[in-house]
């Protein structure tokens, strides 16, 4: 996984609440057996007409936001299905960090597995970032994972919380299967004990 240090880039505003994983990547794109190539289909039904032409007023189709690297989103972003195709599509499009007041649990987990940093901030701060993002391509924001800050184009700085283990994995680009397998002795010991206590499992 690619390491995540800092991102400075255009932030796209998507104030709609409850943006679900079906909106992020509709099911007809779930039939791939690969992890790549989903970026072009990100937000497909909001982004394209049925004939494949772009819907002009969708935020990521506007010239200012076509290369957005940060998404400022409404409450409960990523609710719905467990499909990891959602963060795959977001990452493939080039978005590296998403800010909201809240994220759905599975989506939030999935982001960290794919080098995307989801940031939770209070409503007032999300509102400031949203307004800043609405200024367009000159409003570049900076996410600094090491310092745990996000900075608006005007230099206003907000701090955010992130789980230390997840932060470490993102900063170092670590594959957590490898990390977990280092604890295989603990897993084996657990299995021996559990087999004795609950042999029917």
């Amino acid at each position: 996984m690619e390491k995540f240090k800092t991102v400075t880039g255009v932030a796209a505003p998507m104030p709609l609440v409850n943006i679900d994983t079906d909106m992020i990547i509709p099911k007809r794109f779930l039939k791939s057996i690969k992890r790549t190539g989903f970026g072009v289909s990100l937000f497909d039904e909001m982004r394209y007409n049925r004939d494949g032409t772009e819907i002009e007023d969708f935020v990521l189709n506007k010239p200012a936001y076509r290369n957005a690297e940060i998404l400022i989103a409404g409450d409960n972003f990523g609710c719905g299905s467990s499909r990891e195709h959602a963060p795959w599509a977001i990452a493939d499009f080039g978005i590296k960090s998403i800010v909201s007041t809240s994220f759905a649990d599975i989506f939030y987990n999935n982001c960290f597995k794919n080098g995307i940093l989801p940031i939770i901030l209070p409503q007032e701060q999300v509102d400031v970032l949203m307004k800043d993002a609405e200024k367009g391509e000159n409003a570049r924001q900076t996410v600094d994972l090491e310092a745990q800050t996000i900075t608006t184009s005007d230099g206003e700085v907000f701090s955010f919380e992130v789980d230390p283990f997840r932060k470490h994995c993102l900063l170092e680009g670590l594959d957590d299967i490898g990390l977990s397998l280092e604890k295989v002795d603990s897993i084996e010991a657990f299995e021996t004990k559990a087999n004795a206590e609950r042999p029917w499992v």
């Binding site: 467990s82 987990n109 999935n110 597995k113 897993i187």
Partner: peptide, 21 residues
């Protein structure tokens, strides 16, 4: 019982565990 993403599916297949808080 809960849902997981594909990276976690791979993690469970390989380790029979999940990284959780």
């Amino acid at each position: 019982a809960h849902g997981i993403g594909t990276s976690e599916v791979e993690h469970v297949l390989a380790t029979q565990t999940l990284v959780q808080k």
